[in-house]
Design a protein around this nucleic acid. Structure first.
Lengths: 205, 205
DNA sequence: TGTACATCAGTGAACGCGCGTTCACTGATGTAC
DNA sequence: TGTACATCAGTGAACGCGCGTTCACTGATGTAC
């Protein structure tokens, strides 16, 4: 991290961003609950009172990062879906992107899913979830016959990717020279298996 | 929780268990990081120094519960596997049992997976993971052609169940009158889809 | 361009809090004779 | 069965710690004239 020299009393310029960056580093180093406002201030070379000019309180900083997580995820998943016209390919690309995002942006991922943020206190988090669903539903509808089935397909694929991401993070994928490649492969495989399953059911009915 | 009346200075009798129970309640009420030794002592009506007669430190208490989690999981999964002879049925029963365990024993599940216990400091936790793999591998080998494929099948099924369990816990399964039933159904469905996928691959080769 | 002033992002000291851990101790329990 | 004693699960006081939050303040920056 670049430490800008700064005379005492001078304005920082971009403290909000610097604090968020420090928070991400802390979570990356220490896990979902490794963030403290105090340590973030130390790293930003700023007094402990300074953050309150930018955030209402400790949790507001985390919530801001959680929102960033959902925004970044949305961008990545949009990209994944845009990479092909094939609905099955889009879903499996989504699954792989999910695992990749969790691996590459561990800290953001941890904050959004494991930091124990109160969703009632931060309603913007719930909205973000809705946006993700709206992104995926049209894709799933090209495979599943109705909204209910389509939603279940999305949930199954996303949950599977989520589980693989967590297992990957916790080193539960067993000994493997490239654990991430394995996780991504399994995510894709599971997504395709689910799509096939839904198609078979549709054909059977 | 039953509060036993006890004169001050008297021996408690079963403090170890009482503290573990209090810890579980705390985690159930407040989430994976809601446990503090201090609050557990308060609930057990015992001084803050008392736990150190039974546990080396705070984390040792959590580790003890994590071990209990793995033991209980093992028992449940054994039962699930014993419920049928059919390998596909065994795997899907395992997946359902995984989701059910997470739902019914939320606190144990949280402690084992989200409390951030240091696995190097508590090697017994890693052993427990191995035991689970040993339980499932023979089942998977009846479907997959080799150890590697079998292990991947297990991981895919378990990870999917894990993700569904987490989504269920966090209320991400969407509006549903019986979210648990939906999670279990999806876990079973995913497991069967994976089995079919592996079989198709085997037939194709 | 120079000056007066409002704004606002910082400081640093202070507060209260709950936490985990330690220590010497005490009194109940179980055991040996 | 009764007594002497070792054991051991508790107590309560104390320690140091880092945390989040507040407050009055200060000095740099940007703006109006």
């Amino acid at each position: 991290m670049t430490v800008k020299r700064r005379l005492p009393g001078q304005h920082h310029g971009d403290l909000r961003n610097t604090l968020e960056q420090a928070a991400l580093e802390l979570v990356a180093e220490r896990g979902p609950h490794g963030f403290t406002l105090a340590e973030a201030c130390r790293r930003a070379r700023v007094s402990m009172a300074a953050p309150y000019k930018h955030f209402a309180d400790r949790d507001a900083l985390l919530a801001s990062l959680a929102v960033r997580c959902y925004r970044d995820q949305h961008a990545r998943f949009s990209e994944a879906i845009a990479s092909t016209q094939d609905a099955e390919g889009q879903l499996s690309a989504f699954a792989v992107a999910y695992v990749r995002f969790a691996a590459e942006e561990q800290a953001l991922f941890d904050i959004a899913f494991s930091a124990g943020l109160d969703k009632d206190a931060h309603p913007e988090l719930a909205e973000a979830g809705t946006a993700l669903r709206d992104l995926l539903l049209p894709v799933a509808l090209r495979i599943a016959p109705d909204n209910t089935r389509a939603f279940q397909l999305i949930v199954a694929v996303a949950a599977s990717a989520h589980g693989l991401a967590v297992y990957h993070r916790q080193g539960l994928l067993g000994p493997d020279p490239e654990p991430f490649a394995r996780a991504a492969e399994l995510a894709e495989c599971t997504a395709r298996a689910m799509v096939n399953q839904v198609r078979l059911e549709g054909a059977g009915t």
